[in-house]
Design a protein around this nucleic acid. Structure first.
Length: 589
RNA sequence: GGCCGCGUAGCUCAGGGGAUAGAGCAACUGCCUUCUAAGCAGUCGGUCGCACGUUCGAUUCGUGCCGCGGUCACCA
């Protein structure tokens, strides 16, 4: 139990003796004391006044007196208006310096996180990067909180959109391959996805010019019909189509591997839609016989969710081919077979909020045991100043390009500072990558996942201020100090008894003390941004401490020991938090 | 139009019933013969979209309105 909970519980237990009535724990509001007041922990008495039947000051004083004589950590208190500010003894804080890092006990709960889930018809862009970075971070946070966590990637490798790039390649590519063109495989396939769209639009215009309505044209454009026919042939196992599909997907995977490796994301298991959509069809069949679904005259299969405030939803097309949600049903069953998860988290953009409501509802109606544990981790889009990124229209910030740009910016900045001239070439390359990717990931993670991110390609991502490199730099500072300190006799408990903390030392201890509290909140709220914000605070406060206090040149030996220990803990905390979210940390920069 | 989300400093974002609303960027001012200045300290900058309501207390909760975005496909 941390000190905040400890005081809260203690007050609750003593409340009847003090005021003659019990109190719910939620009424006891405990905050950190604001900087401008003296104290460490603040209890807000306003919510208690109805129960204490005394004015704010009197109530606060009673509680304050009680804590002063019954909590060994409380040194003194002051009351301002309805706020009871408690000052804790320095010994409470310095004791934390020697504590073993608190291990969060393992929980017997399996959490499955699906993220990334790319389509194999286009390269990864900045929006997907946000997905990957968020998914990885979320998994790290769950794991750190003791959950049995696995990461899976569902590859969207089949469907009408895949056939679109296939058909365009057949028509326009003249056999172009990654080898023949020197183009990265995913980029090449993406090029034909764009080509499809261009051709499709042209055909629509032609049809409209020859007297068709827009709607007719959109349904009858020859290249779309060809794609639909190809999907049917694919689902029927047509060898020629399947071979083409395998070839083009292999190109894409080779490209994705490079990007994933650069991003540093990984997965415990891959699922392929091409393997799960048939399972989905079986589920549709089963649900049909059990009356969960129904068939329309043209043979298409639907579910009516209007009683739940949603619409009728198609689950299988009239021609028997499966739609997006068909395979999602299959994949969901398969995941449960494989992992028996208690919670199944889908990291997918908020444009699919409706889809996931439907998916969960259908699985609940089908009586799946895991259905209630399904959770859509819905995050906001990354928008450009010009609006939404659209792969089809080529208005995207490509992931590989962006990574290259970030690394180049890191290189330029770092070399200009001239601090690493003695690095080997390999060390330099590794450092530029650490900094560049650190900046990128920090940029994407620091914003509340629910909210959209505006990215302006003209303004490169900062390396100063509230950024990844700022925190990395702070880490490098701690490492530098510790290298220079060499081996010294470690801090002992007896050293600390009479140690009086300076303001910036205390502030640093206080922020370090909170790491596990923050980590638990990040998990509960599923919010990696909060962890990022915390690492920034740690770095900020350490830098102030660094400026205010001589560490190696401290006047007294005990000061030096304490400050070195603070330096060690700061470095460890930054490293630990960053590791969870996939950001590396340099020994020097 | 129905449903969902979002409006906080010039810009990008935190905060989320409690004390005088915080960071970063941008602009300006100090601080490197001293542990890494990718740093620290400071100045400037706000009717927390608008209105009403609940409350001892609302930027935070509720309702309505305005603005922006998403979604309601036999696309994914």
């Amino acid at each position: 139990m941390n000190i905040f909970e400890q005081i809260q519980t203690q007050v609750q237990q003593a409340f009847p003796a003090l005021f003659g009535t019990a109190v719910e724990i939620e009424k006891i509001t405990i905050n950190e004391t604001l900087k401008e007041f003296s104290g460490d922990v603040t209890l807000v008495v306003f919510p208690l006044l109805k129960l204490t039947k005394k004015n704010p000051e009197e109530s606060a004083i009673i509680i304050g007196e009680f804590l002063l004589s019954n909590n060994p950590h409380v040194e003194s208190f002051n009351v301002i208006k309805g706020f009871l500010n408690l000052v804790l003894k320095d010994a409470f804080w310095t004791a934390f310096l020697l504590e073993e890092p608190m291990q969060i006990p393992a929980k017997n709960e399996v959490v499955l996180i699906e993220y990334s889930s790319p389509n194999t018809n286009k390269p990864i862009h900045l929006g997907h990067v946000r997905n990957n970075v968020l998914g990885y971070a979320l998994a790290g946070i769950f794991k750190a909180n003791g959950y049995q966590t696995s990461k899976v990637n569902l590859i969207n490798d089949r469907g009408i959109h895949i056939c679109k790039s296939m058909i365009a390649w057949q028509k326009f590519a003249n056999g172009e391959t990654p080898e023949s063109s020197g183009m990265k495989g995913d980029k090449l396939v993406g090029k034909y996805y764009v080509a499809f769209d261009k051709q499709y639009k042209q055909e629509i215009e032609t049809l409209i010019a020859t007297g068709h309505t827009k709607e007719e044209a959109e349904k009858q454009a020859p290249i779309l019909l060809a794609a639909q026919a190809m999907l049917l042939r694919w689902e029927n196992g047509d060898a020629e189509v399947v071979d083409l599909w395998k070839m083009m997907n292999a190109w894409v995977y080779a490209g994705f591997d490079v990007t994933y490796k650069n991003l540093g994301v990984d997965f415990d298991k891959y699922y392929y839609e091409s393997n799960t959509y048939l399972l989905g069809k079986d589920i549709v069949e089963d649900g049909l016989s059990r009356g969960v679904f129904y068939k329309k005259e043209n043979g298409s299969v639907w579910i009516d969710l209007s009683a739940d405030g949603l619409d009728e939803k198609l689950v299988l097309r009239a021609d028997g081919t499966s739609v997006y949600i068909t395979q999602d049903l299959g994949t969901a069953d398969l995941k449960y077979q494989d992992f028996k998860m208690n919670r199944s988290i889908y990291v997918v953009g908020n444009e699919q909020d409706y889809h996931f409501k439907v998916l969960k509802l259908i699985l609940q109606k089908l009586g799946r045991p895991y259905a209630d544990g399904i959770q859509h981790f819905s995050y906001g889009m990354v928008d450009l100043p010009s609006g939404k990124m659209k792969s089809r229209e080529g208005t995207v910030v490509d992931a590989d390009d962006l990574i290259d740009d970030m690394i180049a910016a890191a290189k330029e900045q770092t070399e200009a500072l001239g601090k690493i001239d003695d690095f080997t070439e390999e060390e330099k390359i590794a450092l530029f990558k650490t900094i560049g990717l650190g900046a990128l990931k920090f940029f994407l993670l620091r914003v509340d996942p629910k909210k959209r991110i505006l990215f302006d390609p003209k303004e490169s991502i900062d390396l100063h201020g509230y950024t990844g490199p700022f925190v990395q730099y702070t880490y490098a500072r701690t490492r530098s100090i510790l290298r220079k300190a060499g081996s010294i006799t470690p801090l002992a408990k007896s050293d600390l008894a009479a140690y009086a903390l300076l303001a910036s030392e205390k502030e640093l201890i206080k922020i370090l003390y909170k790491s596990n509290i923050i980590l638990a909140e990040c998990c509960k709220e599923m919010n990696p941004a909060k962890l990022i914000d915390y690492t920034y605070d740690v770095a900020k406060i350490y830098n102030k401490f660094y400026n205010d206090c001589a560490i190696l040149a401290a006047e007294k030996e005990i000061e030096k020991k304490c400050r070195l220990q603070l330096t060690t803990l700061t470095g460890n905390t930054i490293q630990r938090c960053f590791a969870l979210v996939g950001i590396d940390v340099p020994e020097r920069m």
